[in-house]
């Protein structure tokens, strides 16, 4: 759908707008934080979003549509609560908004939040560069995967400060 030439990541399912909303979402699920001088990157970077886009390519069409609708719901329901779309909110407002989804009275809404949150975890913790931060030494075997693009997504570097 969009070739993000700026980042060299290929997006087939998420257009630029949805990428931006997802980036805002991912940035609250796994925000950047610091301990002393060390900066731990957040999941709000194109590499993580590209992994989610890749994960969507293997999901049934109905599920992809539901995920897209849910993202738009997160974005525009912000207008009701904070008079601005989710991606325009402050960090505190975003967290408050996301808690509404996490604890929503409707199971389907909680499920949407859980599903999207899980995709963000996948996109972040499957990246090699994150592993030293959690002291995970990674696979014991260095084996290639038949899909070089999938491997490239996991090994693409974050832009650390």
């Amino acid at each position: 759908m969009e070739d993000q030439s700026k980042t060299n990541f290929i997006f087939k399912f998420l257009n630029q707008y949805l990428q931006r909303v997802l980036m805002a979402f991912a940035g609250r699920i796994i925000p950047e934080d610091r301990e002393g001088d060390k900066v731990y990157p957040g999941a709000d970077n194109p590499g993580s979003i590209a992994i989610i886009d890749r994960a969507l390519s293997t999901k049934p069409k109905d599920m992809v549509l539901l995920i897209k609708i849910f993202l738009l719901f997160v974005e525009f329901s912000g207008l009701l609560f904070a008079l601005r779309p989710f991606s325009w909110m402050s960090a505190e407002q975003k967290d408050k908004h996301l808690r509404r989804f996490e604890f929503a009275p409707l199971g389907k809404i909680r499920q949407g939040f859980w599903g999207l949150k899980t995709l963000v975890f996948l996109s972040y913790y499957s990246r090699d560069e994150i592993w030293p931060d959690i002291h995970y030494p990674g696979p014991r075997m260095k084996r290639l995967h038949p899909d070089p693009n999938l491997r490239a997504l996991q090994t693409a570097p974050f832009k650390r400060q």
Binding site: P31, K117, F121, L122, Y125, I134, H135, Y136
Partner: peptide, 25 residues
């Protein structure tokens, strides 16, 4: 389990969840 599945099974999100994951080992 490995990092993604472990992260998925731990409740919560945000900095608190991320700091928990730093203790993965």
């Amino acid at each position: 389990y490995y990092p993604f599945v472990a992260a998925k099974y731990i409740e919560g999100w945000g900095v608190e969840h991320k700091k928990i994951m730093r203790d993965y080992r």
